[in-house]
Amino acid sequence: MIWTYAALALLAPSAHALLRFSCSQLVIERLDPLVNPGALQSPHLHQIIGGNAFNATMDPSVAPSDLATCTTCTFSEDFSNYWTAVLFFRARNGTFKRVPVKGNSGFESSQGGMTVYYTPTLRGTAKVTAFKKGFRMIVGNPTYRTEAEAKRFRQLTYTCLENILTRTGETLDFPKKPCKAGIMVNVRFPTCWDGVNLDSPDHMSHVAYPASGTFESNGPCPSTHPVKIPQLFYEVIFDTSKFNDQSLWPADGSQPFVWSFGDATGYGNHGDYVFGWKGDALQKAMDSNCNINCPQLKTQSIAAGNKCAQKQKVKEDIDSWLPELPGGMPVQ
């Protein structure tokens, strides 16, 4: 699908080049092959997008593109998996209702999912090294409940959408007021790699933020992580509009939304990634400095991406009014 830069300039990060594309929802279930490999149900619920090779166990020596038969992403050579937690509304009576996800601007026909960005270069001319087969990482920590903890990670934020084009006023915690067009969750990953390890025990130590400045200001990588990698960035829009009647909110006026891992603050925002692009497609796109559209890559329609889906490995009710969060996660 072709997008004009003029139509999307306000939506994209400030950059000389980037990929911006839609990935529809693949499945919503309690699976996490990074933190809980092999477990048929992980402690909390995730929404997953990308290739249909997603499973409880994902062998890093096997390329997802060798196993997947379809992807929910509009760049059809991308069989990666991307996932975040799921947002719930907590009613005054203590029951929970899953908040649906809606398509971003330009991707309104997407069935949930998220918008994914890969940004190769900014104000400098240095090239980036695309992720390799077997690469995976996590950013954020679901146990964090304070602003000081959340600040250990850069740019994990929320945007209270006045309309679908709102891109200002990011906060580290959940918005305190009703958001007319929903809450957008922003997940930006570190942009420096140690150049050796495709993963690490905590799924974080092999990557790092710039030693000073930010990726956007072309900050240098630390000596321990000298290899520049693309900035991977998720935008997920939770359609909170049906819960905007403040008579439904807590009597004390506090905000009513809770992450599926029991966080009512928002400071536990986090995201997971398993690389799965076919061959050297991503490196080719990064080297070409594609700007939203990328003729070097194969594409499919959003409608085709919507057809790629998985059933829950373990069937679980996630859409009724629930007496507790899936997995019995406590709110704390």
Rank of each mutant, 00 (worst) to 15 (best):
A7H: 12
L10V: 08
D32K: 08
P33V: 04
P37V: 04
P37G: 04
P43H: 01
L45N: 03
I49C: 06
A56H: 10
A56T: 13
S61V: 08
P64A: 04
A68T: 03
T69S: 13
T74V: 13
F79D: 00
S80P: 11
N81F: 00
L87D: 02
F88M: 11
F89R: 14
R90L: 10
P100G: 04
V101D: 01
V101S: 02
F107K: 00
F107C: 01
E108G: 10
S109W: 03
M114G: 05
T115W: 03
V116L: 15
Y117N: 11
A130F: 09
K132V: 05
T143D: 12
T146L: 07
E147I: 11
A148R: 09
R152L: 14
T168K: 10
L172F: 11
F189G: 03
V196R: 15
H206E: 04
A208L: 08
F215W: 12
C221P: 06
S223H: 06
H225L: 09
E235P: 01
F238Y: 15
S241A: 14
A251W: 02
G253D: 04
P256F: 09
T265R: 06
T265S: 14
G266K: 09
G266T: 10
A281T: 12
L282V: 02
Q283G: 05
N289I: 03
N289C: 10
C294A: 13
I302K: 01
A309K: 14
A309C: 00
E316K: 10
S320Y: 10
E324K: 15
